[in-house]
Amino acid sequence: MNDALPSLDDLVACPQCDTLHVAQDLPEGMRACCQRCGHVLMSSQKTAVARIISLALTAFVLMIAAITFPFLSLNAGGVQNATSVIDAVLAFSDGLAFPLAIAVAFFIVVLPLTRLTALIYALGPLVRERKPYRGARIAFGLAERLRPWSMAEIFIVGVTVALIKVAGMAAVTIGPAFWAFAGVVVITILKDQLICRYSIWEALDQAKA
C-alpha cells in the first residue's frame, strides 16, 4: 500500500472531512472540489496573488477613509447629529455594554484591517518575486482564521436596516464614509473569492527556497 502512495507533499487532505486526494496541476480557471463533501480544495488563477494584493491595498485605503470621513447625519426639527463609524462603536460605551463596544470595534474595524495588513505582509514579497518576510505563513494563516469574525459586510446590511427605520422620522444624509465602507465590503468579497489556500501555501513554499 505504502509503495503506491505519492510523496506526502503531493497529497491534499480535505480540511472539512479528511478525505485524501492527490494534488494535480489544474488548468487555468478550473476548481478542484473534494470528492466526498464538495469543499473547494483548489482553484487555479495565475495572476491571483497580484490581484489579491491590489484589492487588499484598495480595501485598506478605503477603510481608512471610511473611519475618518463622516458616515451619516440626521436632521430633524432643526437639530442635527453627525455620526462616524467610530461613533457607532462608541454607542455601546456606557456602563455594562462597554465590552460590546470593544467587540463591535473588532468586528467592523480592527479585524478587517488586521486581515488586510496580514495578507499584504504575507503576499507582498511574492508579487515582486522576493523571499517572503519572516512570519509570512503565520500572517496568512491568521488572515484566513479571522475570516468569520470580520463582519464589515454584516455591518453595512445593519446600517441599511437602521436607515429604513429612521427614514420616516427624520432626514438622513449619507456621507462619503458610507460609500467608502460599501466599497470595502465589495472589494473584500472579490478578494476573498480569489484566495485559494492551496495555491497560496504552495506559492509560499516555493518562494522560500
Binding site: N81, A91, F92, A170
Partner: peptide, 30 residues
Amino acid sequence: SMIDVFVVAILSALVQLDTLATINPGIAAV
C-alpha cells in the same frame, strides 16, 4: 445574526437629537 446588534449601534449613535428624540441600547443587545 449580528445584524441586529449593528442596527442598534447605528440607531443609538445616529438618533441623539437632544430632547427631541434619543435612542439608547438596551441590555438585550449585549
